[in-house]
Nucleic acid binder design. Structure first.
Lengths: 299, 299
DNA sequence: ATCTTTATTGTTATAAAGACAATAAATGTA
DNA sequence: TACATTTATTGTCTTTATAACAATAAAGAT
């Protein structure tokens, strides 16, 4: 029995909920799938699918087996692809997914140079703050603020992602410069909206975390716009240090020194990570991208 | 092409370094392996093995592919086995691996009852403080002091594993009762030898970790013997609380209150963990063992 | 240089999978 | 309730893939 074929048949039938539909995708008669799945079931001594003429559903074991099988098939495909493309040069579509702010400010400017280095790589960049599943989606490398979702995904820390409070000199002249976290309540706040909602301002006071957010003046998922608002003196912004760097250098924004420190999350050791499938590092386009980004961005 | 068969052939040839030897294990002629591996190579468009008449070695890609393939085959086998034994009752060989001290004092006494509950399970217990790879070795459940090695291994905290300094009343009468960590230098020490060497005594003084170990009187990887030495007044021992419990209850050993606290590792939140392959929890014998141990040991 | 071991290749036999038609069970409609 | 439709399964034949066995060629050891 060709187990891989049987597994492919089985999983596709499970996904489609139909032998006939799955058979069409493979371009073979439904009877083939029926026979292969039956073989698989008899070799395992368990019923994987509950069949009726109208629809096909997974049994309890079937569901568990399916989850594992999908993963295994995917790993196998990735390993094969890595070997197949081993001796080729970097080429083809490279799917990069990045956080919006980092993407606009740091990633995109770098990619021009990358394109010149590897003209045969077609870049496909998507900027989003949603956590997309690196494994099942067709993403080659991803840049995210979190950690590796599982052990087959490798995470390289590109840079710190410390959020610091900033405001324009004009704003501070008008509103005063806060030095204590509790004073912030009387100020104006500009907020990032993440998929989990606007990020609050947190401070650790008297052995407890307090929300010291100022009243909202503007909320956006677009860091650039928030930066501009801050520079225009509209309010105080908690911005990633790398994001505010330009403004700070030109004196358009000043970093506030507040006691105790204000953070946007209880653990402040956040960082920007480059994620990619460990198994795919041999694929030249992936290796080229990972090596390039690490060389250019890592500090 | 039956890819799984090809992969099994390939990996076995790689391990044996010979088509002939691998063929003997499968009970098929060497030509079959040769043909299947050749098929695999041509489907991948890469040479996986460097052949000569005397030995067969992996190429660079071959090596990488082999590593991944071994893992994939193992996962597949586990998934299959989980389904196969899904509806069966707890039976077969159950391989348990445990730390020596915990094994002798807590695990082994429990296993008699377990055997009565599940007479069809043949127990195979190995006690060792070495960190054996739970994944590749044929271990069903392991008990270790560390953490889960990867995401496919589930870790359940069975109990704390705090080390406390103890000594016999007689010893303290002769040598005096230390109350400050720095006094320990003038005492006598009994030490566990882990695979990484004897465990030092550490104390946090003036914002720094200091080694406050007393001169060595005895070193052993056998906790029982060290416990006896301590009870005979030979010296001070850093022992897991559960290990010293009997002596403490009988008054044969006393727990020392030392400022600042003495530890054997910089992070003191150590614990005893029960480890098992997530995928194998469906296998009745594993489920029986995990549930039993958790019910009886977990505090 | 000869012998031995070992991977490969040719050829035939066998087993597995696909193709196609036919059947039976379940669902939806008249 | 009866009929039509969809769909999984089964029977039979054909095609393909793998195993078996013998023969060959290449590499290393004596």
């Amino acid at each position: 029995m060709d187990q891989v074929r049987a597994l492919r048949y089985f999983s596709k039938v499970a996904e489609m909920g139909s032998f006939t539909k799955a058979a069409r995708l493979f371009g073979v008669p439904p009877s083939s799938l029926s026979r292969r799945v039956a073989d698989l079931e008899s070799s395992l001594g368990a019923t994987l699918l509950k069949r009726s003429t109208r629809d096909v559903k997974l049994t309890e074991v079937g569901q568990r087996y399916y989850n594992q099988v999908v993963d295994i098939l995917q790993q196998l495909e990735q390993s094969n692809e890595a070997v197949r493309s081993y001796q080729a040069k970097p080429m083809g579509h490279l799917h990069i997914s990045s956080m919006v702010g980092f993407g606009e400010r740091i990633l995109l400017p770098l990619l021009e140079e990358f394109s010149q280095l590897y003209p045969e790589i077609v870049l496909d960049v998507s900027l989003s703050d949603e956590l997309s599943a690196l494994s099942r989606d067709e993403v080659d490398v991803a840049i995210r603020g979190g950690y590796a979702p599982n052990e087959r995904v490798l995470a390289i820390k590109l840079m710190g992602n410390q959020f610091v409070p900033v405001a324009s000199p004009q704003y501070l002249l008008n509103m005063g410069t806060p030095t204590n976290a509790l004073e912030l309540k009387k100020h104006k706040g500009l907020y990032f909206r993440t998929p989990n909602g606007p990020t609050p301002w947190l401070a650790y006071l008297n052995n407890q975390w307090h929300d010291v957010s100022a009243p909202q003046v503007a909320v956006s998922n677009n860091g650039k716009w928030l930066g501009e608002l801050a520079a225009k003196g509209k309010g105080i912004l908690m911005a990633p240090r790398w994001s505010a760097a330009q403004y700070l250098a030109r004196g358009e924004l000043l970093e506030l020194k507040i006691e105790p420190t204000v953070q946007i999350s209880q653990n402040n050791d956040m960082a920007v990570y480059l994620l990619y499938q460990k198994q795919r590092y041999l694929v030249p386009k992936v290796k080229a991208a990972v090596d390039f980004l690490v060389a250019r961005v890592k500090q």
